[in-house]
Design a protein around this nucleic acid. Structure first.
Length: 397
DNA sequence: TATTCGTGGTC
DNA sequence: TGACCAAGAAT
């Protein structure tokens, strides 16, 4: 912006920024020394594989490097090329993605691979615009792939870039304005040489030095140019919007077991929360607790349903879920919609983490005769309280 | 522009 | 332990 333009036309003064080329060179030197060896990164001097760059960038959306690494390795081992991924079943992709979250990414990943295989000769577009047209690729990811895989002078602005530049230039406006300012500044900072390395360096800097809290400014190659550091604003920037409180939603899950020990599972709808994933059947998730009288008619199979003590609590991005589990055994499979699956075979299904919790809870509760089922369906006690006294089922709320 | 999308780690 | 945070996209 203004201050940067001034900095590019005058020689650098302490804390007043420096020409873009000088900033880029200093950071690239830092990067060459501190560069992390990640499985999707090309070795120095080698060109990056667009497939690996794309796959890693999708996985890294709102997800940490440490979490992504094992998933990335598993995907590459199983589907070495984008064509291999395109020919895979969506279910197998969702299965490999289970536990990583934001499952729309996996659905769009598969769809995108299909487009590239069927319409683009298994070649990724090498321009930002071409990449942006693909499913699951937004402004950030298009710029990241263009810069990292194809050496284009694009400016991928993620949370790291936003934070680093907000501090470097002491951007104190509200978040929306800062995003716009950062977009402009990022374009001006992008070097013509090694743009991919440069932006990866900024992201590494943000992840390891210019951290959200407790930035290690003594280690920062840009400390001499950082206006936030000069003004004592590093902890305050970037300004964050206040978070809204998470509402609590309530649901009942039905743990239906047949005479062979198989448990009833079903597939969730393709769209929406946990779309396409497998789940334990249950009621809808609503904002007030369920009573047994309300829930029992919704059971997938008729039977003697008993409420298990305790429950399952899971935090999603925008709400908390409290699930009560009703269990029934020796059921007759009959006309139940879904698939009967033995717990030891659950690994064959794409179960999201919340459903793994339900399974763990039900298996543990049913394996403990000393902790009999209870009747109440309602808010789940926090962990700090001990097991509640058991009561007989059918006593209502 | 604001909301809807998971999960695990950190302090 | 709750609140925040992480290489965002789609609608």
């Amino acid at each position: 912006m203004k201050q940067f333009r001034a900095a590019t036309t005058h020689s650098a003064r302490p804390g007043d920024g420096a020409p873009a080329a000088a900033l880029a060179n200093r950071l690239l030197t830092w990067y060459d020394r501190h560069r992390r060896d990640l499985p999707w990164r090309a070795q120095p001097g080698e060109s990056a594989d667009p497939y690996r760059v794309w796959l890693s960038e999708i996985m890294l959306q709102q997800t940490t490097v440490a979490t992504v690494e094992p998933y990335f390795r598993a995907f590459i081992a199983r589907w070495p090329t984008v064509g291999d991924l395109a020919r895979a079943d969506l279910q197998s992709v969702l299965h490999a993605w289970q536990g990583l979250g934001y499952y729309a990414r996996a659905r769009n990943l598969h769809k995108c691979a299909g487009v590239i295989a069927d319409s683009l000769g298994e070649r990724f577009p090498d321009s930002e615009a071409g990449l942006l047209a693909l499913p699951g690729i937004g402004a950030y990811t298009a710029a990241a792939i263009a810069a990292i895989a194809f050496g284009r002078p694009a400016a991928p602005v993620d949370g790291n870039v936003e934070r680093v530049l907000a501090r470097l230039f002491a951007l104190t406006a509200e978040r929306a304005a800062v995003k716009r300012e950062v977009g402009v500044l990022a374009g001006r900072l992008t070097p013509s040489g090694r743009p991919g390395d440069f932006w990866q360096a900024v992201m590494d800097l943000g992840a390891t030095v210019c951290r959200p809290r407790g930035p290690a400014c003594l280690m920062c190659p840009w400390a001499g140019n950082c206006l936030a550091l000069q003004r004592g604003l590093t902890e305050e920037l970037p300004r964050r919007a206040r978070r809204k409180a998470k509402p609590v939603r309530h649901g009942v899950a039905f743990w239906a077991v047949d005479a062979t020990g198989a448990v009833l599972l079903r597939r969730r709808p393709e769209k929406g929360l946990l779309g396409g994933m497998t789940e334990v059947p249950g009621t809808e998730w609503r904002e007030w607790p369920w009573t047994e009288e309300e829930a029992l008619p919704l059971a997938p199979v008729p039977g003697q349903w008993l409420s298990l003590a305790g429950g399952v609590r899971h935090v999603f991005t925008h709400f908390e879920l409290e699930l009560t589990v009703l269990a029934a055994t020796d059921l007759v499979p009959g006309l139940a919609e879904g698939m009967w699956c033995r717990p030891e075979d659950f690994d064959a299904h794409a179960l999201p983490t919340v459903m793994r919790k339900v399974a763990d809870h039900a298996l543990r509760a049913l394996a403990q005769p000393s902790a009999p089922p209870e009747a109440a369906i309602g808010p789940i006690r926090r962990r700090t309280s001990g097991p509640r006294p058991a009561r007989r089922a059918s006593s209502g709320r």
